[in-house]
């Protein structure tokens, strides 16, 4: 079964690429809008160095935003999730802030923070923060009460309760949040770069689109997608390693 699945996946990708190439060569699609895969490959070789530099720029900002999201999200989620009054008061606000599209405040953020890395990092952080916060809050609320009682009966201090019981108990949710948050952070950074960037992959892609450079645009899109998928797969791998006790 697995072999057939892999074969089918590979065959489908090759067939799609082949059909695409054929259609472009035969002139069924306008190469101005849909360039052939070979043209994309050639464009990739041409823009390679510059594209990688732009990708590094984007990923750098994403990394900062991501670290901020994870640290703030886990810390705030632990505190809000474990204090009942805070949790009950703040929960609807957090859910609302998670749900509403942050794109609406993007113009204002750019207005206040200007162009450059700061708005990208800020916007990326508010994108990544909320999924992590929501998951961690829920996870802390749902920690098995017996474990908390056991820790109390063994004389755990507040610090020990957080460090030795609550934090390890929510590791699976933190990891799930980290996976979601990463994609959200990258999305936030790219949106800012597209809206008001002067550097980075989002800016580069917008510039290619506005300049009708389809092969370069497709190459850049493929590069960002591949990077994103690779990072998420790496996180999944880490997740499996860290959660061996779950079985």
């Amino acid at each position: 079964m697995t072999l057939r699945v892999r074969a089918l996946q590979l065959a489908s990708i090759l067939a799609a690429l082949g059909a695409w190439e054929g259609a472009a060569r035969a002139g069924w699609v306008d190469p101005l809008f849909v360039p052939a895969p070979t043209a994309v490959a050639i464009a990739f070789a041409r823009i390679g160095g510059a594209a990688l530099a732009a990708l590094a720029d984007t990923l750098g900002k994403t990394a900062v935003a991501y670290v901020l999201s994870v640290v703030l999200g886990v810390a705030a989620g632990l505190v809000v999730g474990s204090v009942r009054l805070l949790r009950e008061v703040l929960n609807p606000f957090v859910i609302a802030l998670y749900g509403i599209p942050k794109i609406l405040v993007l113009p204002w953020i750019v207005l206040v923070l200007g162009f450059g890395a700061a708005p990208a990092i800020f916007y990326g952080t508010i994108h990544g923060l909320f999924p992590i916060l929501v998951l961690v809050m829920g996870a802390v609320r749902d920690v098995d009460r017996t474990l908390v009682t056991v820790a109390r009966s063994y004389g755990a201090t507040t610090w020990q309760l957080y460090w030795k019981v609550l934090l390890p108990a929510i590791v699976p949710s933190v990891l799930a949040g980290m996976r979601l948050g990463l994609v959200f952070c990258l999305l936030g950074v790219l949106v800012v770069e597209m809206f008001a960037g002067v550097r980075g992959m989002g800016y580069v892609m917008s510039a290619f689109a506005n300049g009708f450079q389809a092969p370069e645009l497709f190459a850049a899109t493929a590069l960002v997608s591949a990077a994103s998928i690779a990072i998420v797969l790496a996180l999944d791998h880490l997740n499996e390693k860290l959660s061996h006790w779950r079985g």
């Binding site: 809008f33 849909v34 999305l187 989002g202 899109t221 998928i229």
Partner: peptide, 29 residues
């Protein structure tokens, strides 16, 4: 079953890409 097991993970992998990367191409097109 076979089709689902082949394309399901591919769809999920696409889900791991921030959707906004597709927007410039759509704008161009």
């Amino acid at each position: 079953r076979l089709v689902g097991r082949a394309y399901g993970p591919m769809l999920a992998a696409l889900y791991a890409v921030p959707a906004v990367v597709w927007y410039p191409s759509l704008m161009l097109f």
